[in-house]
Amino acid sequence: MEPVHLFSLASDQAKWLSLRQTAIAQNVANANTPGYAAVDVTPFQDVLDRTTLTLASTQPGHIPLPEMDARAAKVRKSASWEITHSKNSVSLEQEMIKAGEVNSAFSLNRNLVSTFGRMLTAAVR
C-alpha cells in the first residue's frame, strides 16, 4: 500500500485539517480582540510541495532534521471579508464557512482511510 502513499498522505491531510481547525478556533476566540489580525494556514498544496527527502543518520553524532511538521504550515494572515474599526479582521461568518469546509474534508478523509483499512483487512483475511 505504501507506494500509493495513501496512508501517509491522508495522515498529513488530517494533521493539516486539525491545524486549520485550531486556527479557526483562535480567530473565533479573538473575534472581539482589538488589533487582532485573522490567521489561516497555508493551502495544503503548498505543504505537499514543501515536503522534502529526509537524510539518513549514519553516524551517532548526526542530528536528525525535523519531520514535516504540520506546524510548518502555519500561519499567514488571511484574506478577510471585513476589518472593523478596532483593526480586528475576524469575520465570524467566514470562520463558520471555513469550519464547515474543514469538517466535511475531515469526514471524507477519515472515511476514506477506514475504507482502505477495511480493504486491507479483507485482503489479509
Binding site: K15, S18, Q21, T22, I24, A25, Q26, V28, A29, A70
Partner: peptide, 10 residues
C-alpha cells in the same frame, strides 16, 4: 493535540 488546543482556545 491540535484539536485539544482548539478546544482550549475556544
Amino acid at each position: 493535540d491540535e484539536l485539544s488546543a482548539a478546544m482550549k482556545i475556544s
